[in-house]
């Protein structure tokens, strides 16, 4: 997206006046739509549409063996795929840089055991554990990718059902497990602590959340904070530009309050979803 000087000045002034180009205030989000359980061949999935940003997340499970250093922990892996549907720049391997950046940020945010308890994914210490593949597909980019991705990931993990392991038999080096045959005999994951990421963007002298693509272009520096309950689990400065330590602290505070607000809204929304609603998907 190319912006001319006049457009940039307009955005700058709108942020200054606390009346942004789409009518929002500095701490406001654009409208969101969330739907869970929309990809059939996975254990849990969610699609989040934040105005123009569209993210599809699917969770798949596999049985793996834990690492030697952490024999009691299960595994979680994030994979981001930037679809060329979003922008032609992502064609071929064009989206790889952005994809790695987002997936690295996610894995560091989920690394802490208070944020996400990987111990629950362990089946038998040292030999068997669940591996969660969290696959994120970016379908449309309308700014503020990190926030949308983290919300969708949390919703997909909420939706995930892990099959119940009935018994584990150890015979020498061989481990046999029996997974329950019942389709609905599953456990849900505990995701209350799963981090929510908020991008705080500095435009002019003010900090805003949920920037649109145009606002991202005018930003003089931005910082992504991942907040789990009330603690930070990751802080990452993205894009170009530099921030003064005072501004940085201020933006962290803003990020924290916004993330907590967002988190409680998300949990409330997820609780409202009932299992037998009809699928809408992309047909709406």
């Amino acid at each position: 997206m190319a912006l001319c000087e006049a457009e940039k000045t307009f955005i700058l002034h709108s942020v200054e006046e606390n009346f942004r180009i789409d009518g929002r205030q500095r701490g406001d989000y654009r409208p969101m739509e969330l739907e869970t359980n929309i990809v059939a061949p996975s254990f849990g999935s969610a699609r989040l549409r934040l105005a123009n940003t569209d993210v599809l997340v699917s969770v798949k499970l596999e049985i793996d063996s834990p690492t030697l250093e952490q024999p009691k922990l299960g595994k979680i892996e994030f994979f981001v795929d930037c679809s060329a549907n979003a922008t032609p720049d992502f064609e071929g391997r064009g989206g790889d840089n952005l994809a790695t950046e987002i997936s690295n940020c996610l894995s560091s945010a989920y690394k802490s055991s208070t944020a996400f308890d990987a111990g629950k994914l362990c089946i038998l210490k040292g030999s068997k554990c669940w591996k969660l593949y969290v696959d994120i597909l970016l379908l449309e980019c309308g700014g503020n990718l990190y926030d949308a991705v983290s919300l969708a990931v949390k919703a997909a993990l909420w939706d995930t059902r892990i099959p119940l392991v009935k018994s584990v038999v150890v015979d020498g080096n061989k481990v046999d497990m029996e997974v329950s045959d019942e389709l609905f005999d599953c456990e849900r994951l505990d995701v209350t602590g799963a981090p929510i990421m908020v991008t705080v963007c500095k435009i002019g002298d003010q900090c805003i959340v949920d920037p649109t693509t145009a606002e991202e272009h005018c930003s003089g520096g931005s910082v992504v904070v991942a907040v789990s309950k009330s603690n930070f689990s990751t802080i990452l400065q993205t894009g170009g530009g530099s921030l003064h330590p005072m501004t940085l602290l201020e933006s962290l505070k803003l990020g924290q309050t916004v993330a907590q607000r967002l988190d409680s809204t998300l949990i409330n929304t997820l609780k409202q979803i009932n299992d037998n609603s009809t699928d809408v998907g992309f047909l709406k």
């Binding site: 061949p41 599809l56 798949k60 679809s83």
Partner: peptide, 21 residues
């Protein structure tokens, strides 16, 4: 005319390694 086909890694019952290429 330029076409690109890609398949989400979760589209099949067994997870794919790569979406395209």
């Amino acid at each position: 005319v330029n076409c690109q086909f890609s398949m989400a890694v979760f589209s099949t019952s067994e997870r794919k390694k790569r979406p395209r290429g």
